[in-house]
Simulated assay, not measured.
Amino acid sequence: MKEIRTVDAAGQILCHDITRIIRGVTKDAVFRKGHVITEEDIPVLLSVGKDHIFVWENDPSKLHENEAARILQSLCQNDYMEASEPKEGKIELRATVDGVFQVDEERFDAVNGIDEVTIATLPQNMPVRAGTKLAGMRVIPLVIDKEKMEQVRQAAGDRPLLRLRPYRKNVRVGVVTTGTEVFEGRIKDTFTPVLADKLKAFGLSIEEHRLTDDVTEHTSGAVRELVRLGMDVILCTGGMSVDPDDRTPAAIRDAGAEIVTYGAPVLPGAMFLLGYIRQDDRTVAVMGLPGCVMYNDRTIFDLVLPRVIAGEMLTRREIRRFGIGGLCMGCRVCHYPVCGFQH
Rank of each mutant, 00 (worst) to 15 (best):
K2V: 05
E3P: 00
T19H: 14
I21E: 13
V25D: 12
K27M: 10
R32A: 01
E40S: 15
V44Q: 08
V55M: 02
W56C: 11
P60H: 08
S61K: 13
N66Y: 02
R70Y: 08
I71D: 02
Q77M: 12
Q77F: 00
Y80M: 07
E88K: 11
G89P: 02
I91F: 03
A95C: 09
F101T: 02
D104M: 11
E105V: 14
E106L: 11
N112Y: 04
E116L: 14
V117T: 03
T118A: 14
L122Y: 08
Q124P: 01
M126F: 04
A130D: 06
T132M: 12
K133S: 10
A135E: 04
R138M: 12
P141W: 05
D145C: 07
K146D: 01
E147N: 11
E150W: 04
D158A: 12
L164G: 01
K169F: 05
R172A: 13
G174N: 01
R186Q: 14
T190H: 07
T190D: 05
L195D: 07
L211D: 01
T212F: 06
T216W: 09
E217K: 13
A222N: 01
E225F: 10
D232I: 01
D243A: 15
T248C: 07
R253V: 08
I259D: 01
P265T: 08
V266R: 01
G269T: 03
Y276N: 09
I277D: 02
Q279V: 08
T283C: 12
V284Y: 03
G288R: 05
C292F: 05
Y295A: 04
V304C: 07
P306W: 06
V308N: 05
M313E: 15
T315S: 15
R316A: 13
E318C: 09
V333E: 10
